[in-house]
């Protein structure tokens, strides 16, 4: 098994490590960096609990070799809040879009990218967008609600900034 020197920028901070070539990105995050907010829920790339943003796009980090993320930017749930909760986090709380919290980090990161691509998604578009992330607790109703509320909050924030500009 070969070793590799990698630099992965995680939540804005470059992380350099010597790693085994087969190390999965999710284990790099959880075990090398101690960022345990990224969870593991399956072994078939189905559940999406391990979703992080890889260069801004949602990726299932259980199916990415850490060496293949060399040079990339990764955002995990720990990088969402900026002191204050991110509007997505706020909306998940207000809409009761989480119960056990296990799928929540992946769900929120997928939602973040979804809103960036589509600032005003319909219910159907949200359901489509989060269909790579399984939740066993909520029945999705409140997650969909949360994503739409977060989108509205982000739009209005952007609108306010535009007004100030």
């Amino acid at each position: 098994m070969s070793a590799h020197h990698v630099t992965i920028t995680v939540n804005g901070e470059p992380m350099e490590r010597e790693i085994e070539s087969r190390l999965l990105l999710v284990h790099f995050l959880r075990e090398e960096l101690g960022l345990t907010g990224t969870h593991i829920g399956c072994d078939t790339t189905s559940c999406g609990a391990c979703t992080v943003l890889l260069n801004g796009k949602p990726a299932k980090s259980c199916t990415v070799l850490a060496v293949a993320a060399d040079g990339a930017e990764v955002t995990t749930v720990e990088g969402l809040a900026n002191g204050e909760l991110h509007p997505i986090q706020q909306a998940f709380m207000e809409c009761h879009g989480l119960q056990c919290g296990f799928c929540t980090p992946g769900m929120m990161l997928t939602s973040k990218a979804l809103i960036e691509e589509n600032p005003d998604p319909t219910e159907a578009e949200v359901r489509w967008g989060i269909s790579g992330n399984l939740c066993r607790c909520t029945g999705y109703v409140n997650i969909v609600e949360a994503v739409r509320q977060a989108a509205a909050a982000i739009r209005s924030e952007a609108g306010e900034e535009a007004d100030h500009a």
């Binding site: 909760l85 989480l98 919290g101």
Partner: peptide, 23 residues
């Protein structure tokens, strides 16, 4: 009352402590 959940802040920030998080 639909009080917002007291447990949510830690889950939302990835600070929940699940079994595999214990080392």
């Amino acid at each position: 009352h639909s009080v917002l959940r007291k447990e949510d802040p830690r889950f939302l920030r990835g600070q929940g402590r699940y079994i595999d998080d214990i080392t």
